[in-house]
């Protein structure tokens, strides 16, 4: 009681300046637990991983002797890892593009003041409620070339080998692998998009609802058609949402593991393998702890390439 009174009087008397600094201290104080936790559990462990990646720990017995970049050199000369880098790149691009496009289309459809909106919305949200471990298996069945959706597609004269397709398009020789889009990855993208679009639908739907009707009306008055209204007026307004969707989806796609592990595994000729799967297998099956750690470090560096431009631009926007 007493302290409250004094605190209050301090706030009141010194009004602006003191209270600001004091509150700033308090604000920073509230951040400290998070900073400490992130410091230890993210950066501390990244440091540990980095250290292991430079060590000789490639058996059950921990061996922390320093071997320099040996593990990295091994990885970059490894067919599987090269394939993984290619797969992650194209998976991420296709996945994020599809989530954005499909999410926007569904959101626009849902935003037409339709009946049963909540029913449709829940249908599109539903996959998010399921675990990747299970949906991976279901999609594996659905896209099985001999028993899955091909049975229906065949009637339309369409056919695809889905995730068993080992084609790389266009196959440009690069290191030990062929560089290009792994066709099999498209199947995985379909499953991942099915599962994750719900989130972008919700985000875009919220964004669309936030655009005032007057803005659209004004555009229409100027003679714009519906398509132009979306393209010229709404899309730019939705851009910040798109940025958030990209970040959240990028963190899912770059780390994707469960879905691929359950759905296709590494795939024939490693056409659907990703670093997450390789890391897990090489570390805990092969006991190549140092190699596994090196994969993690490369993944993190790849993420940095993605995220730093975003953060830089968002800082510019706010400064």
């Amino acid at each position: 009681m007493e302290t409250e009174t004094t605190m209050r009087s301090v706030t009141v008397t010194t009004r602006k300046k003191r209270s600001l600094t004091k509150d700033h201290m308090l604000a920073i104080g509230f951040l400290i637990p998070s900073i400490l936790l992130v410091g230890v559990f993210v950066y501390g462990f990244i440091g540990w991983t980095g250290y292991v990646s430079l060590s000789n720990w490639n058996s059950l017995v921990p061996d922390f002797s320093f071997v320099g970049l040996k593990n990295y050199l091994y990885l970059f000369g490894d067919f599987r890892f090269q394939a993984d880098l290619r797969n992650t790149l194209f998976f991420t691009i296709m996945f994020i593009l599809a989530v954005i496009v499909v999410g926007q289309i569904l959101a626009i459809l849902l935003d037409q003041k339709i009946q049963q909106e909540s029913l449709f919305r829940n249908i599109f949200f539903f996959p998010m409620a399921l675990s990747f471990v299970v949906t991976g298996v279901v999609w594996q069945w659905l896209l099985n070339p001999s028993t899955g959706v091909n049975l229906f597609l065949a009637k339309l004269g369409l056919d695809s080998k889905w995730y068993t397709d080992t084609t790389i398009f266009p196959a440009i020789g690069w290191g030990k692998i062929e560089f290009g889009i792994p066709i099999a990855m498209i199947a995985v993208v379909i499953a991942a998009v099915w599962q994750m679009t719900g989130f972008s639908v919700a985000m875009y739907l919220a964004g669309l609802r936030g655009v005032p009707e007057e803005v659209r009306e004004a555009a229409r008055m100027d003679g714009a058609n519906e398509f132009q209204v979306y393209w010229k007026i709404i899309m730019p307004i939705l851009r910040p949402i798109t940025v958030s969707v990209i970040i959240i989806m990028a963190h899912i796609s770059l780390k994707i593991f469960d879905l691929i592990y359950a759905m296709t595994g590494p795939g024939a000729n490693f056409v659907t393998d990703v670093p997450g799967v390789y890391m897990y297998e090489t570390t805990f099956r092969g006991n190549y702890y140092a190699n596994g750690a090196a994969i993690a470090v490369v993944m993190l560096l790849a993420v940095a390439i993605f995220i730093i431009p975003y953060l830089w631009s968002s800082r510019k926007g706010e400064a």
Partner: peptide, 19 residues
Amino acid sequence: APEGFVTKVNQAINIFVTQ
């Protein structure tokens, strides 16, 4: 053989099945 060897063989075989 040690697990490390086995994972490498699995990788080599996986590539072989296609190539």
